[in-house]
Amino acid sequence: MSQETALALKGLTKNFGRAEIIRGVDLDIKANERHVIIGPNGAGKSTLFNLISGRLEATSGTIQLFGREIDGLPPHRVNRMGLSRSFQVTNLFQNMTVMQNLRCALLWSKGHKYAFWKLVNSQQEVTERAEELMERLNLTAKQHVPASLLTYAEQRALEIGATIASGAKVLLLDEPTAGMSRTEADDMVELIREITTDCTLVMVEHDLGVVFNLADRISVLVYGEVIASDTPEAVRANAAVQEAYLGTEVH
């Protein structure tokens, strides 16, 4: 597995006032790896995602995406460099239809930028790709329904669709199966597996069934530090992980 490193975090810290939320995270994520971050509530998983995606600025440390530094860049610049993320709380253009949401997510990556001399609806490439995505997300029947009127699971699927639309090389998914029924979660895992065959996935997940099913490697984040980063089998056997996360305290 001596592949290129997709995402490298070095000595990353984040303080909110005097509260240290991320306390020196070092993490290397290889290209085309499915990497799941687990950890108890308040461990800083979402904060870590916010740092990587540019939503928050790190207090110290560096973040590299395929060898290029991205820390301190605004989210849209990070996104243009090939990193895309989804949100734990659904974050869509609520008034827009499914089709419109996907088109918006495609416009930049198809090179349309801030163009005001061409019509969106006559961009065949965008339309075709959006239709392809809807097919994949099973949302074709709902293409003219505003995002706010979709069911929860459909909104989550659209959220994933908007995240992958740009064809990013690195995907950050924040608890994609949270709040879903068993079957919905299974569908979602299948979808994620399908769309991440040729890109790097970094995912936060609570559902351990999903985690061990999907992950190539698992990192365990506890109180702002990575206490283990290894294959699922090794993590399962790791005593420190069992103590800190799985709750078997040693007295």
Partner: peptide, 16 residues
Amino acid sequence: NAVRDNPERAQFVGYS
């Protein structure tokens, strides 16, 4: 319209 409704999401699809 996207920026009006949700500036944050607009950033995460590449737009400032």
